[in-house]
C-alpha cells in the first residue's frame, strides 16, 4: 500500500514546553490508523499541525507526496483533508442540515448551494442523522453531536479524515455503532487517522496504532503488538494506579 500521509520529525514547542518532539509515522492509503496515549501526550497537537491549525516548530508533513507543512488551515478540505475537533464545535444557530451543508459547500466537490443541500441530506442519511436534520445541535444528545462533527467533516468529501476522540463519552452500544460507521466510511475509500482512548474501538478498527507519551512516539504496530508492549502496559497500568 502507498503512503497517503508521512509525518517526518514533527516537533512543536509552546514557550519552552515540548508538546510534540520528533514524531515520525506514516498513514497508508485506505487504512485506519489509530493514535493513543495518555492525557497531554500531544496527540491533538499533532492533529492541529496536520490540519494547519498550528505550524510545526520543525519537521515536515508530506501528503500525497507533497510537502504541505505550514499550509493555511482553510486550504485543507480542498486537498482532501478534513478533521473533527476534540472539543465539539457545532454551529449552534444553524440547523443540523445547515451544519453539514457548510461542509459540503466548501469541500472538495465544489458544489453550489442547492447541490450542497442535496449532498448534505445524503450524508445525514449515511450517518443516521437524517430525521434530526431540522433540529439545532443543542437539541441533540452527545452521541448525535459527535456524529454531526463527523458528518460535517465527511461532507467535505475527504481523502483523509482526522477524528479526534469522537467516541469519548459514548456508552458501549453507541461506541459499536460509531465503529460500524467508521468502517463504512473507510470501505468507501476514505483513509482515517483517529485519536482514541477506548481500546476496544481502536483494536477493532485500526490496522496500525501509534503510541504517544509525553510528546514522543514510543512505539507503533498492530493493536495486538502495541497492547502487549511492556512499556505501553507500564504507562497504561501506571496511569490506572494513580
Amino acid at each position: 500500500m502507498a503512503e497517503l500521509l508521512e509525518i517526518k520529525n514533527l516537533t512543536k514547542n509552546f514557550h519552552g514546553l515540548k508538546a510534540v518532539s520528533d514524531v515520525s509515522f506514516t498513514v497508508e492509503k485506505g487504512s485506519i490508523t489509530g493514535m493513543i496515549g495518555s492525557n497531554g501526550a500531544g496527540k491533538t497537537t499533532v492533529f492541529n499541525m496536520i490540519s494547519g491549525v498550528l505550524t510545526p516548530t520543525s519537521g515536515s508533513i508530506i501528503y500525497q507526496g507533497k510537502d504541505i507543512t505550514g499550509t493555511k488551515a482553510c486550504k485543507y478540505t480542498g486537498m482532501g483533508i478534513a478533521r473533527t475537533f476534540q472539543i465539539m464545535k457545532p454551529l449552534r444557530n444553524m440547523t443540523v442540515l445547515d451544519n453539514v451543508v457548510s461542509g459540503a459547500i466548501f469541500g472538495r466537490k465544489q458544489l453550489n448551494a442547492v447541490q450542497a443541500r442535496e449532498y448534505a441530506a445524503e450524508i445525514l442519511e449515511f450517518t443516521g442523522l437524517y430525521d434530526k436534520k431540522d433540529l439545532y445541535p443543542k437539541d441533540m444528545g452527545t452521541p448525535y453531536k459527535k456524529r454531526l462533527e463527523v458528518a460535517r467533516a465527511l461532507a467535505t468529501d475527504p481523502e483523509l479524515l482526522l477524528l479526534d476522540e469522537v467516541m469519548a463519552g459514548l456508552n458501549p452500544t453507541e461506541t459499536d455503532e460509531a465503529v460500524e460507521l467508521f468502517q463504512k466510511i473507510n470501505e468507501q475509500g476514505t483513509t482515517i487517522l483517529l485519536i482514541e482512548h477506548i481500546m476496544r474501538a481502536v483494536a477493532s478498527l485500526c490496522q496500525k496504532v501509534v503510541v504517544m507519551h509525553h510528546g514522543e512516539k514510543i512505539t507503533e504496530g498492530t493493536p495486538e503488538q502495541v497492547m502487549n508492549d511492556p512499556y505501553v502496559i507500564e504507562i497504561y497500568l501506571g496511569k490506572e494506579e494513580d
Partner: peptide
C-alpha cells in the same frame, strides 16, 4: 442568506475555527 456566501458568513459567525476546518477563508 441561502447562497454559498451566506453559509460562509454564518459558519464564520458560529465558529471561525470550524469555518477554517471546512475550507472557508474567514
Amino acid at each position: 442568506d441561502r447562497s454559498k456566501l451566506g453559509y460562509a458568513l454564518k459558519t464564520i459567525r458560529e465558529d471561525e475555527e470550524t469555518a477554517n476546518a471546512v475550507g472557508i477563508n474567514p
